[in-house]
C-alpha cells in the first residue's frame, strides 16, 4: 500500500533548522494494523500527517499504490484524501452544531457506496444517541462518533492520532475493539499513534520512532487479544 523511502522533513525556526524526520524507510501493506510508538516530539504526528496527505512539504518518496504523493497537485491530493483516508483525532473534532447522525453524514457524503448511517451507529453503539449533540455526549461516545464518521467513508486507511489518549481504560477498550473490528472485518489499514506501549501488542507491526528516525520495526506474529491487555 505505502512504500516510504528517505522521508525527511524539517522546520525552520528563525536561524535554527529543526529536522523532524530523518530519512524514514517503511513499507505498509493493505489490512495491516500498525502502531507507531515514540516519545513526544519524535516526529510521529508529522509522519502520520504526511502519509494522510495533510502535510505536503517533505523530502523523499511516499508512494501510495505506486503513486508518489510528492507529485500530487492540490486537486489530486484532495481526491486522495477523499477516496482513501480517514482520520481519528484525540480531540474528536466533531462539528458541535451537528447531531450525532449529521456528524456521520458529513463522512457519508464523501463515500460512493453510501452505507447506512443507522447501521454504522448501531455498530458503534450509538443508535439511541443519534439525535444528540456532541456537547451531550461523553468523551468515549464522541470518539465513537468520530470512528463512525471515519468508517462510513469506506477508506482504505485510517490514521488514529492518540485516539484513546483522553479516555479512561474501559472506554479506551471499547474504542480499540471498534478499531480492531474495523481492521479485521473491512480489511481497512489502521495506523495508530500512541504513547501506550501496551496498545502496541494489539497490532501486527510496531514502528518505534526516536528523534525523527525509525529505531526499530517489530512484526508481531500473534497479536494479543483485547482481554489480555493490561490498561
Amino acid at each position: 500500500m505505502y512504500i516510504i523511502q528517505g522521508l525527511s522533513k524539517s522546520y525552520k525556526n528563525g536561524e535554527i533548522i529543526n529536522q523532524v524526520l530523518k530519512g524514514i524507510d517503511l513499507n505498509i501493506e493493505t489490512g495491516e494494523f500498525i502502531t507507531i510508538l515514540g516519545p513526544s516530539g519524535s516526529g510521529k504526528s508529522t509522519f502520520l500527517n504526511i502519509l494522510g496527505g495533510l502535510d505536503t512539504d517533505f523530502q523523499g518518496k511516499v508512494k501510495f499504490f505506486d503513486k508518489d504523493l510528492a507529485t500530487f497537485n492540490e486537486k489530486q491530493m484532495v481526491k486522495f484524501r477523499r477516496d482513501n483516508v480517514s482520520f481519528i483525532f484525540q480531540e474528536y473534532h466533531l462539528l458541535p452544531t451537528l447531531t450525532v447522525y449529521e456528524n456521520v453524514q458529513v463522512g457519508q457524503y464523501l463515500s460512493v457506496s453510501k452505507s447506512s448511517i443507522d447501521d454504522i451507529l448501531e455498530k458503534v453503539g450509538l443508535a439511541e444517541h443519534k439525535n444528540k449533540y456532541p456537547s451531550q455526549l461523553s468523551g468515549g461516545q464522541k470518539q465513537r462518533v468520530a470512528i463512525a464518521r471515519a468508517i462510513i467513508k469506506n477508506p482504505k486507511v485510517i490514521f488514529c492520532d492518540e485516539p484513546t489518549g483522553a479516555l479512561d481504560s474501559s472506554t479506551a477498550k471499547i474504542i480499540m475493539s471498534l478499531l480492531l473490528n474495523m481492521n479485521k472485518e473491512n480489511n481497512i489499514t489502521v495506523i495508530l499513534i500512541t504513547h501506550n506501549t501496551e496498545l502496541a501488542n494489539l497490532s501486527n507491526k510496531v514502528v518505534y520512532v526516536v528523534d525523527g528516525e525509525i529505531d526499530s520495526v517489530k512484526v508481531v506474529e500473534n497479536p494479543l487479544s483485547l482481554e489480555k491487555i493490561v490498561w
Partner: peptide
C-alpha cells in the same frame, strides 16, 4: 476555521 480544516482533511473540495 477548525471545521473548515476538518472538512478539508476529510477530502472535501475547496
Amino acid at each position: 476555521e477548525k471545521n473548515i480544516l476538518l472538512l478539508k482533511s476529510m477530502g472535501y473540495t475547496n
